[in-house]
Design a protein around this nucleic acid. Structure first.
Lengths: 419, 419
DNA sequence: CCTCATTAATTGATCGCCGAGACAAACGAA
DNA sequence: TTCGTTTGTCTCGGCGATCAATTAATGAGG
């Protein structure tokens, strides 16, 4: 069994004619992803390629069944009516998994974004240990693959989101404290367990959630954004110029333990005044409902909705607690905004659940602390993917790979004779 | 007079054959910049291009006089000896300027990095106002251009470093508090004043200092680095994947006013506990020599060397002050390291002057606070460009543009018949 | 001293891709 | 029905990279 562990992206600067071809195929695919359905002439104008070239490229994409003609547009305009094309690829799928502290989440879609599988199962990862967790994850993945095949789509890749430090190039989870995983070669083991001959890619959950928001979420198309996970811990995913920021060792976006209050309370990590101790779910629960201390096993989503009910009912102590957390959220957000200058900061997890009450305070504090002032337009926005953003982003990662390397992945060309 | 104000980088996705050609020319040039002198065969192997292709590309670069043959290497090895080529371009120059609070700095070099002009003149920018400052800047630039021409190099572009927020795409200084400049169209006005038909590029001083370190400094070749200016204020320049991070509005890297101590002293910006109030030169002077309060007009370099003398002599109060500043430097550095995960943090300005005493404390604090621990290898390093890093980076920016667009800039091909 | 093996660089042939312009197709307007 | 307009296809030429063969320049060995 050959392992298809994806190596580093290695920018693939087009040096030869075939590479140029691939770049242009990608260019057309990307345009179709971002604009749903356009005619060849539209694509030509938008990309700067010649009409003949676009026709040629689209023809190849049609043959590869990555694109389909959606019909003839009778808009009543003068001239020959345009024949629109759109992403097709109903036969190719992308599977995204997320394994987290207390659940495993799956998201499967085809190339055009149609959702084929969506599922979330409870699972106590830490208590199960790496081996049992891997078996469970494999089973969930296998079931999802079967379901996708039944829907007519064969997965072209598998993405996995993990809450921890990931060596993306080798597909190894270096350290995931909340899962108690150390140096686990997740990509290789999952690839073996599934027996699939498709690439397996692993990345940090916040990174992938950011990717999901960038691809299809509230910040779709925004080239500069930061995503913040809001659970017991707080993680960050950063997108710069439309690409994920990974840093020298793949450890970028570690916002949870930013020292925001050196004289503050002791954090679980041993340091003092970490941002998590101010804006983590445990901190909010401690302030908002001190009589009910936070239990690690509790589902964060459940706890968040409980607090939301209290807030809606006008509980003064809860409102004060949320205002306090909101201010700290804004302070941390200002750090991020001053360093990265993103257009939006998308907040997920419990931040999204309580956005209505949290974000006004956070936004005000952010604007007070951003150096560039109103010139740097940065706003907090709540994700509406809820707790499923990471698995969605894992699927997006697969689709991106497909779009960036349409030939390498879809070779050999499906023979039309078979139909 | 046509204004050559450089627009946004616009990634130049190579879509056509000429673009492919340009990409490969750049590829060869970049390799020669990074490896001084290699044979065609070496270049072919390193770039993955075919030997014949490299020969062809090198031939064109020779004709354009961007490259020269350095001679035949008789290394005693078997086989035909290699004929090395290296960057030449002695006839093309790059001019970098920096205008700061109390000086104007110039750095002129040719394509191969040979320094042709290096100069620093005192100038009180704030007191002079924008118009007189521009006239002074133009005169310095004009003199430098003349000096370069005498040395046989015609500037192919002009880069300007400014301590403030810069709209890079339009070449406008949005806001430079320390110069009291607002919305000044620096590129256009300088272009007019000089009457040169070459591009004028403007960027933030910390950005360009970072670029200088990345191109030729202590962090040469490191694709992920952060530069910190150490003066009265503290600025940051960030390089990700070998490229400058500019953010959505060009306001990234604003580290000076990171809120590191919400309960701390009031900063000049009106907020409390900004990083500058902990590690700015004024803060150090206040702690190290309280009987001699910091004067804004004093040359920072002079003050720094004064303190260095005291430290070398073992002044206990100064040592304690530097230790305190070093710890805060490490704390702020950990924020940067946790978010960007750079390989090195290069410190300039007075941080570099006092590196010997500052950095050990900073490094220890950094390592204590970085989440990824030893897995994320990030170390503080002192710049050895001193206070001239930004102008050097401005020149690098011009050279980078030349290397990235060898045809567009050097057209038409210099006729050999003219010699 | 001459030949051979070895590595470097060039030359000519070939293939692949994009771009230009002619051409066919499919409409609305008059 | 004819004309103008827009869309898409087709063919050809140009350009650029690869490939194979050739020339160039050396050291090793008999």
């Amino acid at each position: 069994m050959e392992h298809h562990v994806t190596r580093a992206a290695e920018a693939a600067a087009p040096t030869s004619s075939p590479m140029l071809r691939q770049t242009n195929l990608s260019l057309v695919l990307r345009h179709l992803r971002d604009h749903v359905s356009r005619s060849r002439a539209d694509i030509a104008e938008a990309t700067g390629l010649h009409r003949a070239t676009v026709s040629n490229l689209v023809a190849e994409l049609l043959e590869r069944r990555l694109v389909r003609e959606t019909g003839i547009e009778h808009v009543g305009a003068i001239g020959r009516p345009r024949r629109s094309v759109a992403l097709h690829g109903a036969h190719v799928g992308a599977l995204g998994l997320e394994i987290n502290v207390d659940y495993i989440s799956v998201h499967g879609s085809d190339l055009s974004g149609r959702v084929l599988v969506e599922r979330r199962v409870g699972f106590d990862t830490m208590a199960s240990g790496p081996d049992r967790s891997l078996r469970r994850l494999s089973r969930v993945a296998r079931e999802a693959v079967e379901a996708m095949k039944r829907a007519g789509a064969v997965p072209a890749g598998l993405g996995v989101a993990v809450p921890g430090l990931v060596d993306v190039a080798r597909g190894v989870v270096t350290f995931a404290p909340n899962l108690d995983w150390h140096d686990l070669p997740l990509a290789a083991r999952l690839s073996t367990a599934l027996g699939l001959s498709v690439p397996v890619m692993v990345d940090n959950d916040a990174n992938l959630a950011a990717l999901a928001e960038h691809t299809a979420g509230v910040a779709a198309g925004t080239p500069h954004l930061v995503y913040l996970t809001g659970e017991v811990g707080v993680g960050g995913g950063i997108i710069i110029d439309g690409k994920l920021l990974r840093g020298a060792d793949g450890f970028s976006g570690e916002v949870g333990h930013l020292p925001v209050d050196p004289g503050g309370a002791r954090c679980g990590c041993g340091r003092h005044g970490c941002w998590e101790t101010k804006v983590g779910l445990a901190a909010l629960v401690r302030m908002a409902m001190p009589e009910q201390p936070y239990q690690p096993v509790t589902d964060p989503e459940e706890r968040a909705t409980e607090i939301a009910r209290g807030l809606a009912a006008g509980d003064r102590r809860m409102l004060a607690a949320v205002a306090e957390v909101g201010r700290w959220l804004g302070l941390g957000g200002s750090i991020v905004a001053n360093l990265f200058n993103p257009r939006v900061i998308v907040v997920g997890g419990y931040f999204a659940t309580l956005a209505e009450w949290l974000l006004p305070h956070a936004q005000a504090e952010l604007e007070r602390l951003v150096v560039a002032g109103p010139a740097a337009q940065c706003r907090f926005t709540a994700s509406n993917f809820g707790f499923g953003a990471a698995s969605r982003g894992a699927a997006s990662m697969v689709i991106n790979r497909l779009i960036d390397h349409p030939t390498t992945i879809m070779d050999p060309i499906p023979r039309l004779a078979a139909y």
